[in-house]
Nucleic acid binder design. Structure first.
Ligand SMILES: [Mn+2]
Ligand SMILES: [Mn+2]
Ligand SMILES: [Zn+2]
Ligand SMILES: [Zn+2]
Lengths: 143, 143
DNA sequence: CTGTAAATGATAATCATTTTCATTTATACT
DNA sequence: AGTATAAATGAAAATGATTATCATTTACAG
């Protein structure tokens, strides 16, 4: 059940934030994309609709949306931050180390491992990250 | 099970790197500590022994040690990078998002998932990364 | 001991993210 | 609808981690 732009906007207003066209555009960019995005990626998308928006505004809005838990910041290693809609379907990635192509996948089952780890360590486990790396068919031919 | 300073030094030499006093000091700082450390933390420790070492050298050495898989870079969210000594075998991490404690674990089985993904995508899969995040017992009490 | 490529450290450059601050604007209230 | 006002915006500068440059030093093979 993905959060909609309308729901996010309502949540913002509920918490006393103003609903500006910039924020609307950012929310639209996030909800109309079903993968994770970094601040630059969101900025680029938003600018095609609303030239003149500042990158700062993107950062500020992401900070608010994260605090309200409407989006979440993924702990993926990388130079930039990664955000995804809070309720978007949990999935993982298979990345080509040659060309950067990313394939989403889902349907794995880590719950048994998670339970075992939790039992043995005493941790409450909140999230996980699973990434595969390899070579796509195109890049196999090249190398 | 933990790599020793001697083993790390030997591995460096084996790969053709020179064994400088700066590198010795960095290796000692890492092996004599059993938490994970960030570049600044290592720099601070090393400087108490060897004033005048440059932070740049710490970064460069960490880069080499990571490439040789003698230490590993943890994908924990945070402003600075986090490194920890590698154990000898392939393993993964369970990280406390409260205090940063890291628990190594091994013995999972991702081979079926890997084969399925490879079959469906045409990728040759070369590696994977699996990280769990949660709260350790100490941090559960605090929050 | 010597020669040489590798390593170091001072310094400057990058690049993502934050701060500052003057200007604009959403919205609650006449 | 018009107004007041605090919040929001964007240009520009600041910050802080990481990287690149380059002149000098040093490990170490021969
Ligand atoms: Mn994805
Ligand atoms: Mn480890
Ligand atoms: Zn590829
Ligand atoms: Zn903890």
């Amino acid at each position: 059940m993905r959060l909609t732009a309308k729901e996010i906007s309502a949540a913002l207003k509920e918490h006393g934030y103003k609903l500006t066209p910039q924020r609307r555009a950012i929310i639209k960019a996030i909800t109309s994309n079903n993968d994770c995005l970094n601040p630059q990626g969101i900025y680029t998308r938003v600018r095609s609709q609303r030239a003149g928006i500042g990158l700062v505004t993107v950062y500020r809005t992401l900070e608010i949306l994260t605090r309200l838990e409407l989006i979440c910041e993924l702990p993926a290693g990388g130079i930039q931050r990664n955000y995804t809609l809070s309720a978007s379907e949990h999935h993982h990635h298979l990345t080509c180390s040659g060309c950067g192509t990313v394939i989403d996948f889902t349907g794995h089952n880590l719950i048994d491992l998670e339970n075992k780890l939790s039992r043995e360590s005493g941790f409450i486990i909140e999230s996980h990250m699973l990434e595969f790396f390899g070579l796509c068919q195109g890049c196999q031919k090249v190398s």
